[in-house]
Amino acid sequence: MAGERFDLEPSIRALLRDLGISTARVLRRAALPADLFTRRPIELAVPEYYRFWDALDAEGRAASPDRDLAVTIGNAISAELFSPPIFAAFCSPDLSTAAQRLAAYKPLIGPVRLDIDTADDLTITYEWPTGQAPPALLATTELVFWVALARIATREHIGPARVAMPSLPANRIPLENYLGSRVRKGTGDPVTFTAADAARPFLTQNDQMWRVFAPGLRRRLTDLQASATVAERVHAALVETLPAGDPSITAVTNQLATSARTLQRQLSQEGTSYQAILASTRENLARHYLASGNLRTSEIAFLLGYNDTNSFYRAFKSWTGTTPDAIRATTA
């Protein structure tokens, strides 16, 4: 991820009102400031962003236990409710172009990357931050969004050809009825549209508005990338490279397109080092994995780039003064 904070658009309050959900209750449940929506810009770190969506899910269930909230959000989506990047998608000539534009600017509005494949059909795959599973409502709403966008912009009842989710809802019927497609188990939350549907003309196409939005979006993206410290960029790169089993500085410098000498100099200027960031990133991820309770210690060691479990045990003891098993017991 280019940065560590993401915009929460003020217009989401209108969506909450349409859903019959109290904004104040969502913020209180998410342990976020009561005056959050009076701030400009409204920026949340990944844990805060996830807490907001978890709280929205909980308040939505409390307000109406029988409804499928992601489907309800899909039916409530309209162009004026969302941010400039999403409104710019409505200005696109078709769904394929909209997906590529949103993939470029998604880092402005959420902790996720989009991988767009147009080789045959149009497949949109999500890449969430490693070690932090997104709230179920957020992940499902992201899939629903593409269908809503296609239907609003084309005025056709478009549905995906294929949809997959890592964790299937207990009751898939409302979601599958909305999508018009079966939801299968899979990784990356991919949603696929046929080439014909991806090329259907958007009746909302507006090249003039796109020319208005594009410079500002490019400037905001540049500012986001520039505002991240070198240490933050190294941390973000490590979160992606560690699960591949490579904790080396070379893996990070390849990702950041710089040299090891330059990176070490920049980190020194910020008062830190590559090894210090590697250790803190490993410790934070280890604590997260242990708290989740779903991974064996050997699996955690692998995800942190260790060749064996004993090396992980020794490192963890040096960070915390205790063992992974002891931490796991306190969070069980």
Score class of each variant (00 low, 15 high):
residue 46 V to H: 06
residue 109 I to H: 08
residue 183 V to I: 13
residue 172 R to W: 01
residue 63 A to N: 08
residue 41 P to D: 00
residue 84 P to E: 12
residue 77 I to R: 14
residue 59 E to V: 08
residue 52 F to T: 07
residue 145 F to V: 06
residue 155 R to W: 03
residue 52 F to L: 13
residue 81 L to C: 07
residue 92 S to L: 03
residue 54 D to P: 02
residue 154 T to W: 06
residue 170 A to G: 15
residue 99 A to M: 04
residue 95 L to H: 04
residue 100 Q to E: 14
residue 55 A to N: 07
residue 101 R to H: 10
residue 100 Q to V: 00
residue 145 F to I: 05
residue 81 L to N: 11
residue 137 L to I: 05
residue 186 G to Q: 10
residue 156 E to G: 04
residue 86 I to P: 00
residue 45 A to T: 15
residue 154 T to S: 07
residue 153 A to F: 06
residue 80 E to I: 10
residue 103 A to P: 06
residue 186 G to S: 11
residue 124 I to V: 14
residue 96 S to H: 06
residue 126 Y to P: 00
residue 56 L to N: 05
residue 94 D to V: 05
residue 154 T to E: 03
residue 74 G to L: 02
residue 135 P to E: 03
residue 47 P to Q: 11
residue 51 R to H: 13
residue 122 L to E: 00
residue 118 T to N: 06
residue 105 Y to T: 09
residue 137 L to E: 00
residue 151 R to P: 02
residue 42 I to L: 12
residue 103 A to K: 08
residue 97 T to G: 01
residue 141 T to H: 04
residue 130 T to C: 05
residue 137 L to S: 01
residue 81 L to S: 10
residue 178 Y to A: 01
residue 86 I to C: 04
residue 68 D to P: 05
residue 159 G to F: 01
residue 150 A to W: 04
residue 70 A to I: 05
residue 107 P to H: 03
residue 96 S to T: 12
residue 60 G to L: 08
residue 102 L to M: 09
residue 59 E to Y: 06
residue 171 N to M: 09
residue 67 R to G: 02
residue 171 N to Y: 08
residue 178 Y to P: 05
residue 105 Y to H: 15
residue 49 Y to R: 11
residue 72 T to F: 07
residue 67 R to I: 07
residue 154 T to Y: 06
